Structure formats: C-alpha cells, structure tokens
Deep mutational scan, measured.
Amino acid sequence: MAAGGDHGSPDSYRSPLASRYASPEMCFVFSDRYKFRTWRQLWLWLAEAEQTLGLPITDEQIQEMKSNLENIDFKMAAEEEKRLRHDVMAHVHTFGHCCPKAAGIIHLGATSCYVGDNTDLIILRNALDLLLPKLARVISRLADFAKERASLPTLGFTHFQPAQLTTVGKRCCLWIQDLCMDLQNLKRVRDDLRFRGVKGTTGTQASFLQLFEGDDHKVEQLDKMVTEKAGFKRAFIITGQTYTRKVDIEVLSVLASLGASVHKICTDIRLLANLKEMEEPFEKQQIGSSAMPYKRNPMRSERCCSLARHLMTLVMDPLQTASVQWFERTLDDSANRRICLAEAFLTADTILNTLQNISEGLVVYPKVIERRIRQELPFMATENIIMAMVKAGGSRQDCHEKIRVLSQQAASVVKQEGGDNDLIERIQVDAYFSPIHSQLDHLLDPSSFTGRASQQVQRFLEEEVYPLLKPYESVMKVKAELCL
C-alpha cells in the first residue's frame, strides 16, 4: 500500500493539533497551500530580480507567473513527485505547466533550498508574528487579574506546605514575570531571523556568478533584492546548502521555554482548584465526569500541561538535527523538520489560546482563602504575639514557653481530632496574655502579614508589564474561544 493518505478522510490519521486544537490561522501558515504558494512567490521574486539585473526574462513571463501564483494543481504535483521522487522539481514542473512561456526560467540558477529553506524562514517569521500578540493578550488578562487582587491576602506555599502570606495578585505576578520573559525572547528570536537568500547549491553562489558572467556586484544585488522582497532586513552571508540548523534550535528553545512557563502556571491553577481557592472557567453544560456528576475538573489547565510537556520535548529534535548536518548538509534534517517545526508552533498556539481562555474567566473564592488563612495564621502570628507581650512588660522566655504549650495543644486538636485551630481562643482565655487581649485582632490582621506584596504588584505592572504590552494595544480586544 502506498504511503500517505487522504487526510480529510475519517479513515486516515490526522494530527489532533490540526484537527482538534490549533487555530485556523496557525494551521494555514503550515498548510501545503501556504507552503507551495510561497515557493511560487519566491520563484517570481527571483525572476523579477534577475530581470532587473539584466537576464533575458520578459515582462510577459513575469506576468504569467504572477497570474498563476494561486493556480496550484495539487493532484498534478503529487503525481509528479511520485514520478520524480523530488518535491521541488515536482512543483517546478507543475508551475511550468500553467506558465508555459515562463517554464524555462522558473528556478533559474537556484537549488531546492532556495524555495525550501527560504519558505521555512518566512513561515517561522509569520508563525512567530501570530504567537506574539496571543502571548501579549494572556499577559494582559493576567495583569488585569493581578491588579484587581493585588491586596487580597492568601496563604503562600513553599514545598506545598503553608508559608508566609502573600497576595493573590502577587502570586499571579510570578506567572506574568515568566511570560514577559517569554514574550521578550519570542520577539528577540523573531527579529534575529535572517533570510537564507540566493546562495546556490553549497552556499557559494557559483551558479549565479556564472549567470551574471562573473559580476560579483550583481550577485550581491540579486541576494539583497530577493531578501528585501521577502520582507527581511538581512540575509546570511555564510550558508551551506541550507541555512544553519542552529536557527531551528533557537526558535524551538524559546517555544519550549514558553511551554515550561505555561505548565507551571496551569499546575498552580490545578492545585488551587483542589484547594477550592480558584477555578478555571466551567461552562453551564460542561460535564466533569461521566460517573461523578459533582466533579469540576480543571480540564483546560490539564490540557495545557499535557501539550506543554510535548512542546518542551520537541527542542531535542533540532538539537540532534543540527549535530548531524555533515559538511554542507545531509538530508537527516528533512523529514524531522517537516514534523517538529509545525508541531512546535501548533502546540504553542494551542496552549496560548487555551491559557487566554482560562485567564479571561478565572474565578476566585475569597471566603475559602480566608478560612485557610484562619487555619494557619495563628501559628504564624506567634512571633508577633511574643513581641507584643514583651512590649507590655512580659518575659520573652516565659511567653515563648506559654505559646509553645498552647500551640501544641491547638495542633493536637487540628491533627488528632480534625478540629479547627483554636490557638487564639486559648490565648484569649489565658490570664497571662490579658495585657494584649485587646491587640489580638490587630495582630491577626492578614494584611499585616503580606509585606509589600501589593506595592510590588503595582510597581511591576507599571514599570515592566504595561510598557512591554504597549506595541500590542491594537490587538488586545480579541477574545479566545474554545470549541473543545
């Protein structure tokens, strides 16, 4: 049975990233139509530049190519590739079939990587351009969430054990800070992308030097003109047959890092959902379990974690691919890159769409948070109580021993009897502590235990987050809708 299948058929496997999760716009960027249309555009740009620099290419040939950029006979191309065992030459023939007058000058002087690699770089750039505003929107939604809850005390956790208090907004800023680093890295790697350009079979530009009869300047002009037509500021000066596969490492490393950030955020949300302090959106008709109707599973956060793990592992592909590119190139890269580049971007696209949807509907339960604080705060307040007693004339050592005994009794009630923490009640009825009984409410005010959390939130948002989001103001209103 021949390899390949009808990918629109229910009898043929289709990647869930495309069929179930990723956005239509990201799927289109990695589609065959987008790819092969870009090949034709690159052939047109090459012909236009070659004509401008004096090669015998007519206006009629150029116009014929322009008129057929979208006229792609995919069936013919597939048949040609089956016959020739070469995808680029299959599309040269297919393009030439609908451009008979231009057929002889299509791909003039070029090698397969002229269309293959340059198209990949265009796709990487455009895919990054799709991700950047999506990530900015996630940051914006979380920034709104953090600002609104900047002063809401909550129990902090280290080692997932109760620690000092923080605020809900401050905790959210930990998430935002990681995503801001990801946004900066995505922008950097996007701006650092260079075009492969017009380089020939081993990167020496020998074929173009021959076409222009040894004119170095025209060869350099050709490279520059096509690079500018493709919208790049610069091209690699040095290439082998391909652009260095280190570029793929750079791009997928940034995406993998984004995956790590999203995994951490969504894990926190899942843990908070278990504590009943916070939940992701839950639709009115949504079913959490087929057997347990009360369940409210954090399905979206779980999906993000599941896909983020996949995204983090994909960076190993370009690392290994770059390491086995012998001399000017081997074909070890080809099949692998067809999979890992598309999957990385479709996965990143999915987790950003999902995280935006989550961040637009996060639900906080202040009463649950308050109750958990009441359970733990008495123990945390013991040092403040000791200091207040010393100020009232008591002995630190005597007070410490009193607190120690009462704390152990209260802990026994919590752990052995399943009761509430009654340390404060014990202190309130103990005559030894009568000098500070009137101060206990103040000493137990949760806001006095959150330090500068709310001020940190305000400063972080104003100095770091809002300036970073400013270039994306025009796209901030787009909502994230999930079908599944």
Rank of each mutant, 00 (worst) to 15 (best):
P467F: 06
T347Q: 07
Q164C: 08
F160W: 06
E80D: 14
S448H: 15
L423K: 03
E464D: 11
V405L: 15
R190E: 07
A348I: 09
I106R: 02
F95S: 02
L362Q: 02
M26G: 00
K470C: 13
I106W: 02
E462G: 10
Q428M: 13
F30V: 11
L121D: 02
K229I: 01
K415V: 07
R404N: 08
E213A: 14
C180E: 07
L331I: 11
V219P: 02
F195L: 09
T58N: 11
P471T: 15
K224N: 08
V254S: 10
G54L: 08
T38G: 04
F232E: 01
R396I: 03
D422E: 07
R37Y: 14
D398T: 11
I139H: 04
G259I: 00
I436V: 10
Y466R: 12
G231H: 09
V475N: 15
S23P: 05
E213M: 15
E370V: 07
T267A: 11
M476C: 15
Q397K: 05
E417W: 08
R452S: 12
R234G: 11
E473D: 14
R20W: 01
I265V: 10
A2K: 15
E228T: 12
R374N: 12
R40Q: 04
L255R: 02
R149P: 01
D445I: 09
L69T: 09
D73K: 08
A77L: 15
K147N: 13
L84N: 09
C266P: 11
R125T: 07
F95Q: 05
K415C: 07
R37S: 12
L355W: 07
V315M: 14
L346K: 06
A322N: 06
V413K: 15
Q286H: 01
H107L: 03
Q184K: 10
H159V: 01
I269A: 00
R296A: 07
N118L: 05
N297W: 02
A388G: 08
A235L: 11
S257W: 09
V92C: 11
E25C: 11
V29Q: 11
V363F: 08
A49D: 01
L423G: 04
V247E: 13
W39A: 09
L132K: 11
E343T: 15
R141W: 14
Q455V: 10
R149I: 05
T313D: 02
I403M: 14
A322D: 05
G54T: 05
A206E: 01
R270N: 02
D192R: 08
S12E: 14
P16M: 12
C340M: 13
Y466T: 14
S12K: 13
C483A: 15
D248R: 04
A90W: 00
L183K: 07
A388M: 05
E148K: 12
